[in-house]
């Protein structure tokens, strides 16, 4: 598998996949996609990289700590749920900023933050699976 073309291809693919996964994440609210699918695509990119270069190099190069991703993902989701409390709303209530609409990303709101949490967690989970099992 160590052919240079493939290696080059994968190196190029990783950022592409990451961007695509982010795209899936943010469009999820209005079209098929979302944090879960985005996270999966994200992790597929690094899985490919791992298949080619091994776990150690992947971890070193991209400073990926799956466990941290999991923890941050969860924390992010919880925080997105806590934010509405300061606005006097219930836990996890979706708060939206109505005036601003960012292109591609849509309106910023806590559900988006929540979805990012999902994204991080799924990415972390799948990567941890791949890392753990690949090293075996």
């Amino acid at each position: 598998m160590n052919s240079t073309i493939l290696s080059m291809g994968i190196k190029l693919l990783v950022p592409l996949f990451v961007i695509f996964s982010l795209f899936l994440l943010f469009r999820g609210h209005n079209a098929p996609g979302g944090g879960f699918v985005g996270g999966l695509v994200f992790s597929i990119a690094f899985s490919l990289y791992t298949l080619n270069y091994g776990v150690k190099r992947t971890k070193e190069k991209y400073k990926i700590r799956p466990l941290k991703l999991i923890a941050w993902g969860l924390l992010m989701a919880v925080l997105s749920g806590l934010i509405p409390l300061f606005a006097g709303e219930s836990f996890l209530t979706g708060l939206w900023h109505d005036e601003i609409t960012i292109p591609v990303l849509g309106k910023p709101g806590t559900p988006i933050l929540f979805d990012i949490g999902v994204y991080l967690l799924v990415a972390g989970t799948i990567l941890s699976l791949i890392f753990t099992l690949w090293e075996e």
Binding site: H29, G73, G94, K107, P111, F114, V118, L121
Partner: peptide, 28 residues
């Protein structure tokens, strides 16, 4: 009310976001 056009996703991240939170913990 929930600003999303993909109803399934809206349910997942808003209406029933608690389920999704639980699902995340399960995965973790």
């Amino acid at each position: 009310l929930a600003k999303g056009k993909n109803v399934v996703n809206v349910i997942l991240v808003d209406f029933r976001s608690l389920d999704t939170l639980g699902e995340m913990v399960v995965l973790g």
